[in-house]
């Protein structure tokens, strides 16, 4: 099966910022991403868990798979939102099937 090179960008960000990040990505032309709930974790700001929360607490994870030449545009857009906030941005090399979808 033929595969194609892509970049997998994972952005873990505070839940109240979800809409803003989605809008920034859409504006930058990145319309394909998946948003996942994050159960809990630990980091520089301490431990946290999603259990029992009633407000918009906790974090969400955006997962985007894009062509390598579109990476900088995505990161520039994401940075305007995540700059000052708690979260993690990571980029990994990936292989995808059906390159025309990315």
């Amino acid at each position: 099966m033929e595969t194609h090179i892509a970049k997998r960008v994972e952005i873990v960000i505070e839940a109240p910022l979800e809409r803003r990040l989605a809008e920034a990505l859409n504006t930058a032309g990145v319309t394909g991403y998946t948003i996942l709930p994050v159960l809990g974790g630990s980091g520089r700001s301490g431990k946290w868990s999603r259990e029992g929360q009633v407000g918009r607490a906790g974090m969400v994870a955006f997962v985007c798979l894009i062509r390598p030449d579109r990476l900088d545009g995505l990161l520039d857009a994401a940075f305007t939102v995540v700059d000052k906030h708690i979260g993690v941005v990571s980029i990994t090399d990936a292989q995808v099937l059906r390159a025309e979808r990315f």
């Binding site: 505070e14 839940a15 109240p16 910022l17 803003r20 700001s45 301490g46 009633v54 407000g55 918009r56 607490a57 000052k84 906030h85 708690i86």
Partner: peptide
């Protein structure tokens, strides 16, 4: 509930802990 979420957006430098 309401204010912590607003503070994360408006005052991200403030320590939520």
């Amino acid at each position: 509930i309401a204010v912590p979420a607003a503070m994360r957006v408006a005052l991200p430098e403030a320590n939520p802990a």
